[in-house]
Amino acid sequence: MIIGDILVLRKNPGRKRAQRMLKGKIKTVCFLKQISGKKRKPEIEVLAGDGLKTIHREAGCLFELDLSKFMWSPGNRRERERMQGLVKPGETVIDMFAGIGYWSIPIAKACPECRIIAIDINPEAIRQLERNCQLNGISNISARVGDCRELAKDLQDRADRIILGWIFRPESFLDAAFRMLKPKGIIHFHYLDRFLQEEELKRAAERAGYSFRILSDVKVKQYSPRTYHRVMDLEAWK
C-alpha cells in the first residue's frame, strides 16, 4: 500500500529489491511488521529511502503523519467517504477513538456546520489531529486527551452521533457510548464479525435505558482470512 509518498509492504523483499522500488513519487520503502498496543503503534522497518513522515491525501483531506508512530488503514477509505455523507448540519458527533483524525477530519471537512468532539488516549495523536485540523482549515473539531470511558463520566456534551471505532472487544465501550448519546441518536459500532457478542449490545442498551434498531450493517474490509471488519449503525432512543 502507498501512504503519501511511502510504500508500505507486509512482506520483506530485502533491501536490494526495496531500493529498486524507489521511483516516481515513492521516497521511502518500508516493511510493516505489526501494529500493537492500546495506542495501535506500528512496528516498522525502513528498507530503502529515508524518513517515515509524509502527507497523505484522501477523501478531499490532507493527513500529516509519522508512520513510526501512527497507523493508517487504506481499507477504511470507503467507510470514511460514507460517513462524510451521513452527518448533517447542526449535529454533534463524538469520535471515541479519534487518532490523528481518521474519521473526524473527513466529516468536519464535508460538514463544517456540524460539531465534533474527538477523543484519544494518546497525547501525540491528539497533537497530530490538531495539526491536521490546521492543514485542512478546520475549526469545528474540539480535541480531548483521555480514556473515553473516563471522560464519558463527566462530559457535559451529548452527541447526536457517536463513532465507536475500536474493533477489539468494542462491546466494553458501549456503556460509555450510551452515556454520551442524546436521548435519540446513532452509534456507529465497529467490530470484527467473528467476535461480536450480540447479547452484550442488548445488555448495554438496557443498562442505559435505551432501545435500538440496526439501520445498516456494512462490510468495511477484510481483517484476516476468515474475519471482516464491519460497522453497524445503531439507532437508539429512550
Rank of each mutant, 00 (worst) to 15 (best):
L164N: 10
R169V: 11
G209P: 15
K53T: 12
K109N: 09
E130T: 03
R169T: 14
P183S: 09
D157Y: 11
R78M: 03
A48G: 09
H229L: 09
W103L: 15
D160L: 11
K88I: 04
I163E: 01
I2A: 00
R149P: 13
F31A: 02
I105D: 00
A208K: 08
K16R: 13
F189S: 04
R80E: 00
K38W: 01
D50H: 13
E124V: 03
K202D: 14
G146N: 10
F212S: 09
R15E: 15
Q156A: 13
D50K: 15
A125T: 04
Y210Q: 06
F195G: 01
A205R: 11
M83F: 12
Y102P: 12
G85S: 13
C133R: 02
E45A: 09
F97M: 06
G165R: 07
N122V: 02
L129F: 05
H56Y: 06
C111Q: 11
R127H: 11
N132C: 06
P74T: 02
A204V: 06
V8H: 04
I214H: 05
R169G: 02
V29R: 05
L201Y: 11
C148S: 15
D175S: 14
L9Y: 10
S104H: 07
E199L: 06
I117D: 05
R213Y: 10
L65G: 06
Q19W: 00
I117F: 15
S211M: 08
K182L: 13
R127G: 01
P183C: 10
E130N: 09
N132G: 07
H229V: 09
Y191I: 01
R15H: 01
A159G: 06
T54S: 10
R179L: 14
V145Q: 08
C111A: 11
S36K: 14
K153Q: 15
S73I: 04
R144K: 15
N132K: 06
C111P: 00
E43Q: 13
R226D: 12
R40Q: 07
D217G: 05
V231W: 00
